[in-house]
């Protein structure tokens, strides 16, 4: 096995990077892949919380880098999926405790017996961002259909181009089809039109995501969740499968009700 290292980044904070990492990693592991997530947000760690692994942390990324433990010791196994691991960030240090070459070294150590290494980038475009993208084979840029988030995503895409990281793929997160229909939200087309990069998934707004994050159980595990379905589709696309995009047309109350009645939703 030679792992593919995928970094999830956004520029702006709060657009759903960590949620995307937790969900994609879980979806890939559900497909039988061996997955390691690395929380690159040193000092503000929360991937462990979203994945429900907070109370199992003994060693973290900085412990590995500074030689206080072996890489394997810092890999926390998921509660349900035996091939899903998390390397948590250090909470009591800052971004300067990690260098880009450290990230490259750790990812290279993980490559031989892993299918996917997914790196959660901190918000911003400084040291933490540079660490997170250092080892990336491909980059996913997460944005929301909001002008400020798209502006920051554009900046990040520009920086990735300058670093010659290859063209990133785009995840549009938290799209609300009803708001788009009423012209109260940027549409996926508006966002793509500006960024001009490959779209790998559109995740509809879904309250199950928040519930899942708070419970430490990523939404992909919920077969009924639309956001979960979107993340599962992205995971398939990351594995090279062609999956059609979900129909996100706003559903009228009546049609919705009929579908629910018919057990399709």
């Amino acid at each position: 096995m030679t792992a593919k290292v995928i970094t999830v980044t956004s520029g702006k904070g709060g657009v759903g990077k960590t949620t995307a990492v937790a969900n994609l990693a879980t979806a890939l592991a559900m497909d039988g892949k061996r997955v390691v997530c690395i929380d690159g947000d040193i000092g503000l760690r929360n991937l462990d919380v979203v994945m429900g692994l907070e109370n199992r942390i003994v060693y973290d990324l900085v412990d590995v880098i500074e030689g206080r433990c072996k890489l394997k010791q810092a890999m926390i196994r998921d509660k349900h999926l035996p091939d899903l691991y998390l390397i948590p960030a250090a909470q009591t240090r800052d971004k300067n405790a990690v260098s880009p070459s450290d990230m490259v070294r750790i990812c290279n150590d993980l490559r031989p017996d892993t299918d996917f290494v997914i790196v959660d980038s901190p918000a911003g475009i400084e040291r933490g961002f540079r660490n997170a993208i250092a080892a990336a084979d491909s980059v996913l840029v997460v944005t929301n259909p909001e002008v400020s988030a798209v502006r920051d995503a554009d900046r990040v895409v520009g920086l990735l181009e300058a670093e010659e990281k290859g063209p990133p793929s785009l995840i549009i997160n938290r799209l609300n089809p009803n708001l788009v229909k009423n012209n109260d939200m940027l549409s996926a087309e508006d966002v793509l039109d500006l960024l001009g990069i490959r779209l790998i998934g559109i995740v509809p707004e879904d309250e199950n995501v928040i519930i899942g994050s708070n419970r430490g159980a990523p939404t992909v595990g919920d077969a009924k969740s639309r956001a979960g379905q979107a993340f599962r589709n992205i995971a398939k696309r990351l594995q090279g499968e062609e999956v059609p995009f979900m129909d996100l047309a706003p559903q009228s109350g009546l049609w919705n009700a009929i579908q629910r009645f018919a057990g399709r939703k």
Binding site: I65, E66, G67, A97, V98, S99, P100, S101, D102
Partner: peptide
């Protein structure tokens, strides 16, 4: 240097 958490490359 890596053991000590020092950078080994100038950005």
């Amino acid at each position: 240097a890596q053991l000590l958490g020092l950078a080994t490359r100038i950005s």
